[in-house]
Design a protein around this nucleic acid. Structure first.
Length: 212
DNA sequence: ACATTAAGTGATT
DNA sequence: AATCACTTAATGT
C-alpha cells in the first residue's frame, strides 16, 4: 500500500495531505491498460474516477453521423474532468476514453471521490483546477474544429501531441491524424509533405518529429 | 517470398 | 478539399 501513494505523490503533488493520503490508500486501486484498450465507452456507468499516472489517454466523442471528434488527451498528472460530473449525477458516459499508449491509472471509487469533495480541501481544489484546465482545452478544441484550416489544425494537433513526448517524436500514422481531425488521409499526407519541405517537421513511417 | 499496411501521386468532381 | 485508383516503400509472417 506504500507504493500506490508514492505513485500519487509523484504525479499529483497538490494532493500531499497526510490525512487525505491515508484515506486514499484505503480505497485506491491501480489499473493498467494496454494500448488501444477501451477504458470508458458510451453508455458505460462510471463507478470510479481515474487519475492518470503514466501513458496517454484519448478522450473523444462520436456524433450521430459517426464522426469522431477528439476532445482532449490525458497524460500523467491528469484526471478525467467529465468523469466527475458523470459520477456525481450518476449519469451514463457521453464520452469515450481509449488508451493511446500502455497506461497506468489509479481508480478512485465514485463514493470516495464524492465524499472527499466535502472532507478534503486539497481534493476539492484539485478537482476544480483540473476541471478548469480541461475546459480550456475543450475551448481550444472547439476553436480548432470551427475555424481553422487544415494547415493550422495540423500544427495545433502536432504541438498538442508533442507535449506528451520528451524527445519530440510523435508516433502516429497519417490516417490516425486524418481520423482525429475529420479530414482525408491524402490531405494530411500532402499537408505534412509541404510542412516537411518547409523544414517544420521530419517525416518517417509511423512517426513525425516537430522541428522548432 | 508474399501479404499487409503506410504513404505518395494524379485525376476527377 | 474529398474521393478514387493506383504506385511505391516499409514491415510483418
Amino acid at each position: 500500500m506504500q507504493a500506490i501513494s508514492n505513485l500519487l505523490l509523484d504525479k499529483f503533488h497538490d494532493l500531499s495531505d497526510p490525512e487525505f493520503i491515508r484515506d486514499f490508500e484505503s480505497v485506491a486501486q491501480i489499473q493498467k491498460v494496454k494500448q488501444g484498450e477501451m477504458i470508458i465507452d458510451y453508455g458505460d456507468f462510471i463507478s470510479f474516477v481515474p487519475l492518470v499516472i503514466s501513458g496517454l489517454i484519448k478522450v473523444s466523442r462520436t456524433n450521430e453521423e459517426d464522426r469522431e471528434i477528439l476532445l482532449y488527451f490525458l497524460s500523467g498528472g491528469d484526471t478525467c474532468a467529465s468523469s466527475f460530473s458523470c459520477c456525481m449525477i450518476k449519469k451514463r458516459s457521453e464520452i469515450q476514453a481509449i488508451a493511446e499508449e500502455d497506461s497506468t491509472l489509479i481508480a478512485i471509487p465514485m463514493e470516495a471521490a464524492d465524499r472527499w469533495m466535502s472532507e478534503y480541501k486539497v481534493w476539492r481544489d484539485f478537482v476544480f483546477s483540473n476541471y478548469d484546465q480541461k475546459m480550456y482545452q475543450l475551448i481550444d478544441t472547439i476553436d480548432r474544429l470551427a475555424f481553422s484550416q487544415l494547415d493550422q489544425k495540423l500544427i495545433d494537433y502536432l504541438e498538442d501531441r508533442s507535449r506528451f513526448t520528451d524527445d519530440g517524436v510523435i508516433h502516429v500514422t497519417h490516417s490516425v491524424i486524418a481520423h482525429d481531425l475529420n479530414v482525408s488521409r491524402e490531405a494530411v499526407s500532402r499537408m505534412l509533405k509541404k510542412m516537411e519541405n518547409q523544414g517544420m517537421v521530419t517525416l518517417e513511417r509511423n512517426s513525425i518529429t516537430l522541428n522548432d
